[in-house]
Design a binder for these strands. Sequence first.
DNA 1: GTCTATACTCTGATAGAC
DNA 2: GTCTATCAGAGTATAGAC
Lengths: 201, 201
Amino acid sequence: MPRPMTRIQIRNSETILEAALDVFSAHGFRGATLDQIAEVAGLSKPNLLYYFPSKEAIHRTLLTRLLSTWLDPLRDMDAAGDPVAEVMGYMRRKLELSRDYPRESRLFAIEILQGAPRMREAIEGELTALVAEKAKVLQHWMDEGRIARLDPVHLVFSIWALTQHYADFDVQVRAVLGSGHDPYAEAGAFLETLYARLLAP
Amino acid sequence: MPRPMTRIQIRNSETILEAALDVFSAHGFRGATLDQIAEVAGLSKPNLLYYFPSKEAIHRTLLTRLLSTWLDPLRDMDAAGDPVAEVMGYMRRKLELSRDYPRESRLFAIEILQGAPRMREAIEGELTALVAEKAKVLQHWMDEGRIARLDPVHLVFSIWALTQHYADFDVQVRAVLGSGHDPYAEAGAFLETLYARLLAP
DNA sequence: GTCTATACTCTGATAGAC
DNA sequence: GTCTATCAGAGTATAGAC
């Protein structure tokens, strides 16, 4: 990654990252080509490599930015808040992320599916630590009898799985639902019911 | 796909498909190379192309085989059986598929994630039709008051999401759980509880 | 800073000997 | 049926003009 100084440099870097997100999330790292990214960005291929030293550097920059956005809603789950409302709120924010940032969700999914070759440290470090911290909070709520007793880590997994499914498997979801449906609205209602029943002490 | 005749032809075709499953599920279609597949299969690259006309043909053969295996458990959900037991049984068999065939799960996931370029017809035809059929069965059970009233299609989505997560995001699941865990055993217990609470009328 | 032209590597597929 | 050798095309990255 370069050190963007001027306005133009910042703007071009952002344009490249935006285009790269489009292409990487649709075709994976190997499936994406610099030609495609350059075309979407409206820049020449060598110009891309003026702003970033390599294809890999562009990809790595996207993943790094992504992770913090991805973990923010979990970070916001407040030990001092109402337990059911906090878990519900987390689920809701995570579903909104899937709805509003489906490309980011798919980029992340492809990376993990392929064994996280460019994210292992972040997964094993930052993400694992945050889940461990929040699992303690959940366990505490369960011990107080304020939410149902469940495996707290798998409870977090369930929220990830159920919300990300709508972004990652979007093609399948829309095919099965047919036209005239709003997948995310329906998912929201379904998941509210699911977690209301699951979490009740 | 060729028409295997002799024993050797059949055996070699199977060896190639087995190796291809390994490589495609780990790196995606574009990320996989014939060199890698040939090495895993213990055959030469031209020999691969003697048995299959192209890289794409190998991939397509894998996807075609996969889909029917993948849909079998849902097909087995019996309208005449006990509703809760049938849904639970479907969830359980789907989780077993994730545990026993994680490579197939990832192959399928990568394909859908990238917009199902080689599976669209199957998704829009066979899969959509089967879900529609089974959604009617679920709706009927709900109308009879034998399971809780929920959106039947999203109920199916939830089973897919929650079970496939353990195969597709295996790296992340194991990193977060740490060593000394059996992800599928824990998932089984968690999902039994989840669906018991969710389905109770 | 941005472009044209190009070097170099990888990869899918084919030719042809055995 | 299987191998060695090789072609043709795509793709990342660089050189060098402007």
